[in-house]
Nucleic acid binder design. Structure first.
Length: 260
DNA sequence: ATGGTAGGTGCCCTA
């Protein structure tokens, strides 16, 4: 089975592009981020025609996360278990159970810059995610937490660490919070299977970054140990970062995880 | 050279 996570940067603008990719690749589970659609605007029928169920948390304009799956996601929750969690305030988190797997689709705040209040919000959001996942880890044994983390876990996950010094996505605090989340027993499966590979998942639209190879690996799939043992391959489909006859690409490419 | 491009909203904000 194939699991995919993809920040599509507006599902409205990207629908034909995404549907073409899904029809060609036929993933069992697809986590989406940045749908930029209101809750009830998700194109349920378009995915139904390809044989998929959908669960969406959206607010319009910005954010918006979804789980698309060949079997119906059960026990869907959006944002938070209790109101103490900040995750409910924006449409950046959705979870659902598919078969025996608890799936979380997350869109971590960007942070903008280290001096921006949005960076503190990012750190707080990650702490809340950690608390939520600690509870989830006690309830479920097979867990996937996937999405746009807006964090490059290590220096090998960016094209030029020197150029990014002092900016968001690579700061010590956010990397520490990510590693604390992984300490709950979640494995960065792409890195685990490809220990020395420079394979990015995002390239800025500007300045020809994609063609110059100036990207980052910020889209991650974190898997619980038993699940990760079943994975045979994890890779980024960088072809999906190129313009196709179905339209223009997102600035992110899909991360694919293949199970036996 | 603190730029550039893309998307949504509506004449700027976010990434």
């Amino acid at each position: 089975m194939k699991f995919v996570t993809w920040n599509v940067n507006s599902l409205n603008a990207r629908l034909a592009f995404v549907l073409e990719w899904v029809a060609a690749n036929s993933p069992e589970i697809l986590c989406l981020q940045e749908t930029k659609l209101k809750e009830d605007e998700f194109p349920v029928e378009a995915f139904e025609e390809l044989g998929y169920f959908s669960a969406h948390s959206g607010q319009g304009r910005w954010n918006g996360v979804a789980i698309v799956s060949k079997t119906q996601p059960e026990s869907v929750t959006k944002g938070a278990i209790t109101e103490e969690f900040e995750l409910h305030k924006e449409a950046r988190h959705i979870s659902g159970t598919i078969g025996d797997i608890r799936v979380h689709s997350v869109y971590v705040p960007n942070g903008r810059s280290l001096s921006d209040p949005h960076y503190l919000y990012k750190l707080m959001w990650l702490k809340n995610l950690k608390e939520l996942l600690a509870l989830e880890s006690a309830r479920y044994s097979d867990i996937i937490v996937a999405g746009d983390f807006n964090i490059a876990p290590g220096d090998e996950d960016v094209w030029d660490p020197a150029a990014l010094e002092g900016s968001t996505h690579v700061s010590q605090e956010e990397r520490k919070l990510l590693s604390e989340i992984m300490d709950l027993g979640l494995i960065d499966i792409h890195r685990a299977l490809n220990p020395h590979k420079k394979e990015f998942s995002w390239w800025d639209y500007r300045n020809g970054a994609f063609h110059k190879g100036e990207g980052m690996r910020i889209d991650l799939a974190l898997l619980s140990p038993n699940l990760s043992k079943r994975v045979i391959r994890a890779y980024v489909d960088r072809n999906a970062r190129k313009t196709s006859r179905a339209g223009k690409p997102s600035d992110h490419a899909p991360l694919v995880v293949e199970f036996n």
